[in-house]
């Protein structure tokens, strides 16, 4: 069968495309114009300039010198620090607890599943402000925390208010409420991962824990992070409610307190807003890098179309060796 009309030897035909030395010229087209974009931009800039000039000159209530005076006031900076701490601590707890609750809700164990469901029902179903007031009263409701058997003298008894400061209660209140929302976000992320991934991990002999921690969760993170970023920013602002506990050292309460003394509420509102915006901006940068990290392997697809070393090798073998019977092709 060697006299089959096989492909011509490689030296005869030049490879396609190698005939011309210069690459084809790019198309030189006149760009489509968008005049209305310019008009809109100019109108907006004029409006903004007018607003800024007006705010600077005609509105004494803004009192910009007062803003400048208090922006980096020690009390304000400290308050911003507390706000940031409240946000970070409560979110860290909420994320961990949220993951636990999400896994519990997806568990095949009906007891565990119901516990998670009741938790969500309770903490999502009541306002966070009400919950924070409750946490503030916990020292009144449960005067001491006793460890021991019911009906007998406790082995260990701690006065609740000694154990938990208002700051700690604020963190607990915010975290437990947020965990309920995080649980739903994490659950959505876990469900978004292809079923085949779990199956592949199981087939490899990985146990449940390894499957979750190495295969499912890292992929779920891609879905979990954007709404979690949302929650963090939302939490930053929810911290202004911890006055309900009452914890008074965070940004909004602190600036309000100062305003109550100076009789100038507006500049202090601006000070607080600037700090909230600044912290939000930092958090957004963090989110960008986190998203980039967990997009690993998802958004890259350059090399797919190029011939690989081994497939071009296969092609070379194909042209040189005459087809023989033992070389039965694959796709029958």
């Amino acid at each position: 069968m060697s006299d089959m009309p096989s492909r011509p030897a490689g030296s005869e035909t030049p490879p396609a495309g190698s005939g011309t030395d210069t690459p084809p010229e790019a198309i030189k087209a006149i760009k489509l114009r968008h005049p209305w974009r310019m008009v809109l931009a100019v109108v907006l800039i004029v409006l903004v300039v007018l607003f800024v000039v007006d705010a600077a000159v005609n509105r004494p209530v803004y009192n910009w010198t007062e803003v400048g005076k208090y922006l980096f006031d020690t009390r304000v900076v400290e308050a911003a620090g507390y706000t940031l701490q409240l946000t970070v601590y409560s979110m860290v707890i909420a994320i961990i607890l949220g993951i636990v609750l999400a896994v519990m809700r997806l568990s095949p164990n009906p007891v565990v599943k119901s516990v998670a469901w009741v938790y969500l029902w309770l903490f999502r179903g009541t306002p966070v402000y009400v919950q924070l007031v409750f946490w503030g009263l916990i020292g009144v409701i449960y005067k001491s925390i006793d460890i021991g058997l019911p009906g007998s003298e406790p082995w260990l008894s701690i006065t609740t208010s000694d154990l938990l400061s208002y700051f700690a209660l604020a963190v607990i209140g915010l975290a437990l409420n947020e965990a309920a929302y995080m649980a739903e976000i994490v659950r959505a992320g876990l469900l978004a991962v292809d079923r085949g991934q779990e199956e592949a991990a199981t087939a490899l002999g990985l146990g449940w824990w390894h499957t979750m921690s190495r295969v499912i969760l890292p992929q779920a993170m891609r879905v979990i992070i954007p709404p979690t970023g949302n929650e963090v920013i939302s939490m930053l602002k929810t911290t202004s409610l911890v006055i309900a506990v009452p914890f008074t050292l965070e940004l909004f309460t602190r600036t309000s307190d100062i305003a109550a003394k100076t009789y100038q509420p507006v500049p202090m509102l601006i000070v607080a807003s600037i700090w909230y915006l600044a912290i939000t901006s930092i958090l957004m940068v963090g989110q960008y890098y986190l998203e980039k990290h967990y997009a690993k392997g998802i958004d890259q697809r350059p090399a797919v179309q190029q011939p690989t070393v081994e497939t071009s090798a296969v092609a070379a073998v194909d042209t040189e060796v005459p087809p023989s019977n033992h070389h039965a092709g694959g796709g029958a």
Binding site: G196, Q219, K296
Partner: peptide, 13 residues
Amino acid sequence: IGMVFQRFNLFPH
């Protein structure tokens, strides 16, 4: 027991 799937199911990350 090794298993190979129709849809590969490689871990994309």
